[in-house]
Amino acid sequence: MVGSPLHFGHGQNDRHHHQQAVTAGNERRIRLVFFFTASYALIQAVGGWLSGSLALIADSGHMASDAAVLLLALMAYRIARRPADSTRTYGFHRVRVLAALVNGAALLLLVAWIIWEAIGRIYVPVAVLAEPMLIVAVIGLGVNIAGAWVLWSGNRTDGNLRGAWLHVVGDLLGSIGAIAAAIGIMLTGWSILDPLLSVLVALLIVRSAWSLVRESIHILLQVVPHGVDVRAVEESLARLPGIEEAGHFHAWVLADETIIATVHVSPVREVDPFSLPSLVSSWLWEHYAIDHVTVQVDPPGQLDRAHQ
């Protein structure tokens, strides 16, 4: 091996073929919830106009924005279904990650808008007709419970679906808050309950929205997946039979839970170097569920020199 050219290879049990199946069930679920959300936004807008409730009209805008985000998620699924080509060899699946990032960012913007509006209403109270508000909010709660259940029954490792689910959960919490505010206003006449509960709901949304944004950014920046310790992997690989050295390990998430990795190894002298890719690939799948591994086999001693 000494002085020979570098060898490249993939493990024989490699489970990844640069394509991921776009789950038709997830797409169907988002399509159904999109129609739920868009229809209820229209009902809420009409109800707000007939009752003169600014709160309902504002929330209908919230629902309309969520419907637009769900439509974006549907478009992402359609794009992700396109096959890989010579310039996009991994396909279009990261479009779903971009859609999840937009979903999370939209939620954070929505939270900021809710808090801004709530502060304004605390200083300048807005009259709220509690009875029609309660009726429309109860209808909305039913619609959002149905939508959340439809999405929850899908594949929750799909960031795109998760982003849509978080939007619906935000709507569901908003409906609960609106019901509580309507009942409170009916019993006490305190219209300030509406903005106060709106702030509470917004704060409940922040954590999930930020988590979605952070995870999407980590995938796009090719951050090492959670639970994978680069140094520990290299040390463990170096202890496998037939391997003298291991280094230059890199791992990142393609989309959802599909992990890709590359690593350099050097064989023990007189060990067949072509046996190492399969060995390394099997070990990484068994311990870290890494789908796709590219192994570069270097001459003995070359990795040590590279680190000097």
Rank of each mutant, 00 (worst) to 15 (best):
S86M: 13
R156Y: 02
E117T: 03
L129F: 10
L212E: 01
H292Q: 05
G174P: 06
T294N: 12
L50E: 05
L107I: 07
V111G: 00
R81H: 11
T258W: 07
I139T: 10
W252K: 09
L240Q: 11
R207Q: 09
Q296R: 07
Q308E: 13
L101H: 03
G184W: 10
A45I: 10
A76C: 08
I119T: 12
Q296I: 04
L72C: 10
Y40I: 05
I259T: 14
V69L: 14
P83N: 06
L54Y: 10
P300Y: 11
E257N: 13
A112V: 12
P277C: 06
G61A: 04
A21F: 10
R162G: 12
I259Q: 02
S65F: 09
V97C: 03
L254P: 06
A58L: 11
I205E: 05
V201H: 05
G301A: 02
D298M: 12
G11L: 09
Y40V: 04
L172K: 03
S153L: 15
F34M: 12
I260L: 15
G177R: 04
S278M: 04
L197R: 06
V280C: 02
V69S: 14
V228E: 02
V169R: 10
S53N: 13
P299G: 06
D158V: 05
E215Q: 14
A106K: 05
E27W: 00
L141T: 05
S65M: 13
L303V: 03
V2N: 14
I30F: 03
L284I: 09
F34R: 11
H287K: 15
L303H: 01
A55I: 12
I57D: 01
G140L: 03
R231D: 14
A255Y: 00
V265M: 05
P267F: 08
T188P: 11
R82A: 15
L54C: 04
F35L: 12
P225Y: 07
S60Q: 03
E234A: 11
P195M: 02
H287W: 09
P132G: 04
L6T: 14
S51R: 10
I219W: 04
H226P: 02
G11K: 04
R81T: 08
H264V: 10
I219F: 08
W116N: 12
A306Q: 14
A181S: 11
I176V: 15
Q302F: 11
